[in-house]
Design a protein around this nucleic acid. Structure first.
Length: 444
DNA sequence: GTTGAGCGTT
C-alpha cells in the first residue's frame, strides 16, 4: 500500500516490548499494525493512560521519544522497531503505575487520578434475577478483565436486579459501554453511575466525516478508518447526504483525526468534531445548517417521515456539552428536554451520542428500558429520571399517524416496519443489524 | 414464593 508497509514487511504483526520504566521485568509485548505503526489505542489497552512511547538510544544513552501521528506511534527509524525496550510515557499529572488503576488506591493516588480517571465502576441495570457475581463476571470478561462485581441485595439478601462492575482498563470499559448487552435473554443497561456524573470524562468518540461521495458506504468508511483504531459504529445517512459519522472505541483516536482530510475512494473527505452546531437556542427548527458541521437536518436524521419539527424549546447546550465531553446527567438526554423525544433521539444519535443514548445505533443504547425496543402506548412517562427511556418507550405518536417509516404498525414494536429493511435507519451499519440483533426481541 | 425502575451499608 505504501513504502512503509514494504519497508516493514518483515515486521508484520511484530510485537514490541513495552514497559512502564526501564525495568523490563514487567514488560508487555504488544502488536504493531500491518503498516509497522503501533496504534496508541493498542498501547493504552495495556497501559491505561499512556500517551506515548520513548526508549533509550543505545549510543547516545539519551531517552528518545517516538513520533505520534493520527493516533499511531511510528517506529524510531525506517528500519523499524528494532529490539529496544520501549517505555510508556504518561501525562505528567498522571504518571503512575499500573496498580494505581485499581480501586485499592491510596487516597493520595486516587486524588491524583481524579484529573484523568481511567476507569469507573459501571452500573448494570436490569440484570436477570438468576444472575450471580460469577455469571456476571463471566459475561463481561469478554470485554476485558473484570476486577469487581457487586450485585446489590436487600436486607433479606435477595438480589435487587442491579449491580456494579469495574474493568481493569479504560479500553475494556469503553468497549462495554459501546454496546448493548443481552445477558440470559435480558437487555441489561450498562452505564456510568449517576454518582460519577461530571467526574468521569466522557470524551467524544464520534467524528463527523464531511464531503462524502455517494459511493461511500458505511463499510467503506469503517474499513478506511479502522486503521486508526477500533471503529464501533458508522452512520451514513440515506438518501445521500454527503456526510457520515464514524465512532471509535478510543476517544483519543477520534480526536486525533479531527481537522484532517483523508482520501477515501479517490475523494477527499474532511474529518471534524461531531459536536452539533448551535444555532438558535429557542425555536430550534432542526433544519439545514442548524446541526452538524456541514449541515444536516432533523428530518432526515431520523427515518423519513418522522416528526419534522419540535414545537418547543430545547436545551441544545446540554447536548453540545455532552458531545464535548461533559456529562451532565449520566449520559442520557437532558432531563429537561422539551423536544419531542423522537427528534431528540434521532438527532442525538447522530450527533455523537451513539454510545450513550439509546436508539437505532449499533453503539447500543445504554438507556433503553428493560423491555428493549420501546413498547407503544403510554401515558407520557417516556423518560426515567436520567432521561433514559423507560419501559414504555417513546410517546405513542412514534407509532401512529402517517409515519410508516417510523413504524409499520401501531402495536409499538420496533421489529416491524423499516427499522431493518434498508429504509430510514436501516440499510447502514448504524441501524439495527444482525450484529445487534435483539431490537426485535421483547423482554419480560 | 411474586417483581423490573433504579444508583452503591465502600
Amino acid at each position: 500500500m505504501n513504502n512503509k508497509e514494504t519497508t516493514y514487511s518483515e515486521d508484520l504483526f511484530q510485537y514490541i516490548k513495552v514497559s512502564e520504566d526501564e525495568d523490563d521485568s514487567n514488560a508487555v509485548e504488544i502488536p504493531c499494525e500491518l503498516n509497522g505503526t503501533l496504534l496508541l489505542s493498542t498501547l493504552v489497552a495495556q497501559f491505561p493512560g499512556a500517551c506515548g512511547l520513548k526508549y533509550r538510544h543505545p549510543e547516545s544513552k539519551c531517552i528518545r521519544g517516538l513520533r505520534l501521528s493520527d493516533g499511531r506511534l511510528h517506529p524510531p527509524t525506517e528500519a523499524g522497531w528494532g529490539k529496544h525496550l520501549y517505555i510508556c510515557v504518561f501525562p505528567k499529572e498522571n504518571k503512575r503505575k499500573m496498580e494505581d488503576v485499581s480501586p485499592e488506591n491510596s487516597a493520595a493516588k486516587t486524588k491524583r487520578l481524579e484529573k484523568k480517571l481511567i476507569c469507573s465502576d459501571l452500573i448494570c441495570l436490569g440484570l436477570p434475577w438468576k444472575s450471580t457475581e460469577e455469571s456476571i463476571k463471566k459475561y463481561f470478561d469478554q470485554f476485558g478483565e473484570v476486577v469487581m462485581v457487586q450485585l446489590k441485595k436487600d436486607k433479606n439478601g435477595s438480589f435487587k436486579g442491579f449491580g456494579f462492575i469495574r474493568f481493569a482498563t479504560y479500553t475494556s470499559q469503553m468497549r462495554a459501554l459501546a454496546q448493548r448487552h443481552n445477558i440470559d435473554g435480558r437487555w441489561v443497561d450498562v452505564r456510568i453511575p449517576n454518582s460519577k456524573e461530571g467526574v468521569v470524562p466522557q470524551m467524544p468518540c464520534k467524528v463527523f466525516v464531511g464531503r462524502c461521495t455517494e459511493d461511500m458506504t458505511a463499510d467503506d468508511l469503517r474499513e478506511y478508518f479502522s486503521k486508526f483504531g477500533e471503529v464501533t459504529d458508522v452512520f451514513v445517512p440515506r438518501p445521500f447526504r454527503a456526510f457520515g459519522f464514524v465512532t471509535f472505541l478510543d476517544p483519543e483516536v477520534a480526536q486525533s483525526l479531527c481537522g484532517e482530510d483523508h482520501v477515501i475512494k479517490g475523494a477527499s473527505v474532511s474529518v471534524s468534531s461531531a459536536a452539533p452546531k448551535i444555532k438558535n437556542k429557542n425555536n430550534q427548527n432542526w433544519k439545514e445548517e442548524s446541526y452538524g458541521p456541514n449541515s444536516w437536518d432533523g428530518n432526515r436524521s431520523g427515518p423519513p417521515g418522522g416528526p419534522s419539527n419540535n414545537g418547543g424549546n430545547s436545551n441544545i447546550d446540554s447536548l453540545n456539552m455532552q458531545n464535548l465531553g461533559i456529562n451532565p446527567n449520566g449520559g442520557g438526554p437532558p432531563a429537561n428536554f422539551n423536544l419531542p423525544i423522537s427528534l431528540v433521539a434521532a438527532a442525538l444519535n447522530q450527533a455523537g451520542w451513539g454510545g450513550f443514548l439509546g436508539g437505532p445505533n449499533n453503539s447500543g443504547p445504554g438507556n433503553w428500558g428493560q423491555n428493549g425496543p420501546p413498547q407503544g402506548g403510554n401515558s407520557g412517562k417516556n423518560l426515567n429520571n436520567n432521561g433514559s427511556w423507560n419501559q414504555n418507550g417513546p410517546p405513542p405518536y412514534w407509532n401512529q399517524g402517517n409515519n410508516p417509516n417510523w413504524n409499520g404498525n401501531k402495536n409499538g414494536n420496533w421489529n416491524q416496519g423499516n427499522w431493518s429493511n434498508g429504509q430510514g435507519w436501516g440499510g447502514n451499519s448504524s441501524g439495527p443489524t444482525s450484529s445487534n440483533s435483539g431490537w426485535n426481541k421483547p423482554q419480560t
